[in-house]
């Protein structure tokens, strides 16, 4: 049975275990051959900010983990445009090629899902 899972990342990276544990959920769903998408919204857009130096704070390289999502057949990483713009960021400031989605498309994206995890 295949369901569509959307994992919503709305918190900044490195401030808690949150992103790591969300990624563990995401990768487990992918390992079960589900249709998995990710949405970065609000402060979650900082997750993929290029030029992070996580090793200086004994943090994991989140960008590298996102980079490896393709191995798990996860191709759909969306970033909400308005969240980027209101933080003074552009798609070029991100360390990974992602799909930039206007806010008006977030609702339709969510309606296509079976399970949405927004913790």
């Amino acid at each position: 049975m295949t369901s569509a899972f959307l994992f919503v990342f709305s918190r900044p990276p490195h401030s808690s275990l949150h992103v790591q544990e969300m990624l563990d959920l995401t990768l487990t769903a992918a390992a079960f051959d589900q249709n998995v998408s990710l949405l970065l919204i609000d402060d979650g857009v900082y997750t993929l900010r290029a030029g992070q130096k996580p090793e200086s704070r004994e943090c994991r390289d989140i960008c590298a983990i996102f980079d490896s999502l393709e191995i798990y057949d996860i191709d759909c990483v969306y970033v909400e445009k308005e969240s980027l713009v209101s933080r003074g960021l552009r798609s070029g400031d991100l360390g990974l090629a992602v799909d930039i989605l206007p806010r008006s498309d977030v609702g339709p994206l969510m309606r296509r899902q079976t399970v949405i995890v927004n913790v």
Partner: peptide, 22 residues
């Protein structure tokens, strides 16, 4: 493990999350 959550979410009609404001 986490597989138990995915398994339950696949089989359920509705999956709900509670809490997380930390």
């Amino acid at each position: 493990g986490l597989g138990q959550w995915v398994d339950a979410a696949i089989k359920a009609d509705r999956t709900l999350t509670f809490g997380g404001d930390f």
